[in-house]
Amino acid sequence: MFDWQDLKHFVVLARTGSLSAAAREMGCDHATVGRRVAAMEKALGLRLILRLPRSTPLTQDGKMIAGLAAEIENQSHAIVRHARSAGETPQTQVRISAPPSVAARIIAPQIAQFHQDFPHITLILSGESAIAELDRGDAEVAVRMVRPQQPDLLVQRIGLMRYALYATPQHAALPEAARAFIAYDHHYQHQPHQQWLQLLLQGRPVVFEASDLFSLQEAARSGLGAVVLPTFVADSDPELVVLPTAIAAPTRELWLVTYPDLARSVAVRAVMTFLADIIEKKCPLVT
């Protein structure tokens, strides 16, 4: 019989594609991952990976075992989710994943009211651009800007994020030909709001790029140029005004996501109702 820890290391290696990536996820060094997989191979009497200088592709047996092992991993996560929903204590934690702007400008300001209503529930909020892996326990509830396609997830459309072009009144007063622009860096070039900005440029320069919305907002507040921002972030900023545009601004749907077994938890249901209510107020589906 193989060691379950060896199987776990192999599953992560198969999913991530390299010893170093698997080691980062497992919180160990790559030699440990290699040693665990070697032990798995010895126990099964099968070669699972090819040890090449710069990669570790799976053998045919490795691919077959990885597919079977992934099912075991999914079931183990389901067991953990059931335990979380069934084993609530008087003091419960619920982890939320949301885009940084939604986390900072919509959710965080309302945490005090939630705590007053539900003092026994501790919220752990993660504002990140990456999509949280609910099946791996990264969060119990997620707010996403793309509708998930997994059929086993519980999905609810809760808001519509709107965008506009903003600048200081002084920059807005410049002739259009003299206007400069601020943008996300190249990692976001395929996002709808960045593609919209490209249509607005018409040969005018992008003078500053950043990887996060709040840096862009502060740069715009300094008078550097015009920037595309969510309306729930910038409409309340006294230093910025909306600039008219000939092309209609894009919108992004916001989705609330969890697993059905987690939604049976009283605490998770309370958090989902809270998120749906506050996001709909700031990003209403209907104007």
Rank of each mutant, 00 (worst) to 15 (best):
I158S: 03
A104I: 06
I107C: 00
T92I: 00
R147S: 12
I131V: 15
Y184C: 12
I124Y: 06
Y188A: 15
A167H: 09
Q156N: 09
A104R: 10
S211F: 14
A112C: 02
L125I: 10
S126A: 13
Q93F: 02
M145E: 15
R144H: 10
A172E: 08
H186A: 14
S101A: 12
L153H: 05
R179A: 08
I111L: 10
V143A: 01
V207L: 09
A177G: 10
I131T: 13
A178D: 15
Q189W: 12
G87L: 07
A177H: 14
A98N: 01
I96P: 02
Y166Q: 02
I121Q: 01
R204S: 07
D212Q: 13
R162L: 02
S129T: 14
L160R: 11
V155A: 03
S97K: 04
S85V: 03
Q202W: 03
A86S: 08
Q91L: 04
L213Q: 14
A83W: 02
L125D: 07
Q110P: 05
I131R: 14
A98D: 04
A139D: 09
R136H: 12
I131D: 07
P175K: 04
W196S: 08
D212T: 09
S126W: 03
I96H: 00
E218N: 09
E128G: 11
V143Q: 04
R162T: 09
V141R: 01
Y166C: 02
Q191F: 12
Q195H: 08
L123P: 04
Y163H: 10
P148D: 09
G159K: 02
A178E: 15
E218A: 15
I111R: 03
T168Q: 06
Q194P: 05
V143D: 10
Q149T: 14
I107H: 04
R204D: 08
T168D: 03
R84Q: 10
D212P: 06
S215E: 10
A139Y: 00
F214V: 06
Y163R: 06
R84M: 08
F181E: 12
I124S: 13
T89C: 01
I158C: 01
L200W: 01
D212C: 10
L197Q: 07
H190K: 11
F114R: 03
A178S: 15
P100R: 00
I96D: 05
R179T: 10
S97E: 03
L153M: 11
L153A: 04
R136V: 06
H171P: 12
R105P: 00
P192C: 07
Q194C: 15
H186K: 12
I131Q: 12
R147N: 07
H171F: 08
